[in-house]
Design a protein around this nucleic acid. Structure first.
Lengths: 328, 328
DNA sequence: TCAATTTGAGAAAACGTTTTCTCAAAATTA
DNA sequence: TAATTTTGAGAAAACGTTTTCTCAAATTGA
């Protein structure tokens, strides 16, 4: 079913048919309507390759990710897809696994296919993808991964999210709050700790460990045996640590949230819903982040000017039961 | 950088240049080599749209999924991407969220873009995607989702995987084995139970509940208080249930694996590694499943005949510490 | 030596659109 | 009524390849 058939069926030339369908050119409204009606009846859909060959727009973008198992990338991807489908743009998924050669292969394939732009995403905000995207003939946007200095980058505002979490702990009446988090080498740990200290003071206690449940357990063991006064509020660097913390407290017979309030970070449903009680935690709104990244790369592809820089997207505190109190 | 430039630089016509680069046509080897050398030096890459317009092949396939958070779809997608990148095929990711209109929009967009084929994937083996893909002008393959009768469908062999798991429990010396699993309405529950009963006999105990940790807890409470002899082996329908089971056993002071052996299903790393002790569980090899689906849709796109039917891909038992014994 | 075959390479058509011209007919103005 | 402008629509070029012809030159066979 080509435009040629539509034109023939409507009794016009292909030029007229094209103009009718695209609402361009000049012709009687009656002619335009008739062509459209015929096209609809015949189920005509223009061939995107022929169209793209002329317009130099493929209505396609590439999504490069090095995260094939992660809970971070999926919502970002969903947000991108959601934002772009409304504009008729399709997304190439490229899983590159931290392999520079594979990454280059994918980038080359995308450029061959004339993508209008590329979004790079990953599993860590402070790591770059193993491929240089800085001198490409198409716009590039970075989402939840590190980009070069002069790039457009979207990340979550971990500082704001953490501040909200700690302030919430204080709102529900907690005084002696500690922060149990991941390895110092992560930038997100730095942001979250900085926010914690901004609210609680410079010498508030921060315990660094791994991102695991086990570390949550170990941290509680340490806090409850070192002779210091025990905390009544714990801000955890992620939900897995919070899970370990809550389990360890229960094993010690310490009631959450009656005696100790706990807040997590990530709002990883499967963990946050399984803790007993369900976990109050910070959601990074990664889907929204993805949506913004998608709209931005599209704007760039259409030639709009977007200032370079890091955009920090707000986080939201999701209140469940591990803190007591209630969201006002 | 068009082939025209390459031809000019090499002092040949575009026809010759094209034939040289594609290893078709007749010409002196020296000419062919020279054109290739010039093309490489100039960094020429053919425009896939122009090429596709003629060849009617886009070297692109569509991946339709209704699972945007799930742990099942990601490995499948990674396998597909991995299998196809070697053939120069890129993958359109379409997240459809169980929305029929959105699904249709995505399918239309893919067809406009002349995809060579479509892979449908989901989060449940016994549910169909909310869109009819049966009368499309391109081949369709189903992976980890239900397809129509006459389709090519890839799923995991839950029966074989479960049988291996239960046989393993017997190999480590367990006699009184029960099966704690999810809702009967799931096809995977049916397969896993059937395998369990094949090994253990028709009246072996199967407890159906939800897919949650909580259900694992509750099942242990029930098993240890109903006056019956307690089991010494538990085959769980998924890793979350196994997690609940192991936690509940520990809370009761029952040693895993010394007193009771536990096996899970899914090999969801984040759960299986966090149980204490680490969980022996069944891996569905979803990445391999995705790879097969990718290669199959490609073969269909190239006109090869593939018999319709359901292909059950083998599962693998991953031995950790929750059963005792060791893999021979 | 002459005809038949093979070789090497280019001209041109094709793919399915969009877009730029062109131009006759109709409408407007003088 | 004659000159000008506007309108409606089609012809043809363009996008960047691949592929099918065509054809002269070189090679082979008799």
């Amino acid at each position: 079913m080509r435009i040629y058939e539509v034109a023939a069926a409507a009794g016009v030339s292909v030029a007229t048919a094209s103009k009718a369908l695209n609402d361009t050119g000049r012709m009687q409204e009656e002619t335009r309507a008739r062509v459209k009606e015929v096209a609809a009846r015949l189920g005509f859909r223009p061939n995107a390759m022929a169209r793209g060959l002329i317009s130099k727009r493929s209505f396609t973008i590439g999504l490069l990710t090095n995260d094939t198992y992660g809970r971070f990338t999926l919502p970002v991807m969903a947000g991108i897809s959601e934002a772009l489908v409304d504009h008729g743009v399709s997304v190439f998924l490229c899983a590159i696994e931290d392999d520079p050669a594979l990454a280059q292969t994918h980038v080359d394939a995308m450029l061959d296919k004339q993508v209008d732009g590329i979004i790079a995403t990953g599993k860590r905000i402070d790591r770059k993808l193993p491929v240089d995207l800085s001198r490409l003939p198409v716009p590039v946007v970075y989402a939840f991964t590190r980009g070069p200095e002069d790039s457009v980058t979207f990340v979550s505002d971990d500082f704001q999210g953490s501040r909200d979490a700690v302030e919430w702990l204080r709102r529900v009446g907690r005084q002696r709050i500690v922060h149990v988090t991941g390895p110092e080498s992560f930038e997100s740990v730095t942001w979250r700790s900085a926010a914690f200290r901004e609210v609680m003071g410079e010498d508030a206690l921060v315990l660094n460990g791994s991102w695991s449940e086990q570390w949550g357990h170990d941290a509680i063991a340490r806090l409850w045996t070192d002779g210091e006064p025990t905390p009544d509020g714990i801000f955890c660097g992620n939900d897995q640590i919070a899970r370990g913390v809550i389990d360890a407290l229960r094993e010690r017979g310490i009631a959450v949230p009656q005696e100790v309030s706990v807040v997590g970070f990530d709002n990883w449903e499967i963990v946050a819903a399984a803790t007993r009680p369900p976990l109050t935690t910070v959601d990074m709104n990664l889907r929204t982040l993805g949506r913004e990244a998608g709209l931005t790369v599209l704007a760039l592809a259409e030639g709009k000017e977007i200032a370079a820089g890091i955009r920090r997207m707000p986080c939201t505190l999701v209140v469940r039961e591990s803190c007591g109190g209630a969201r006002d």
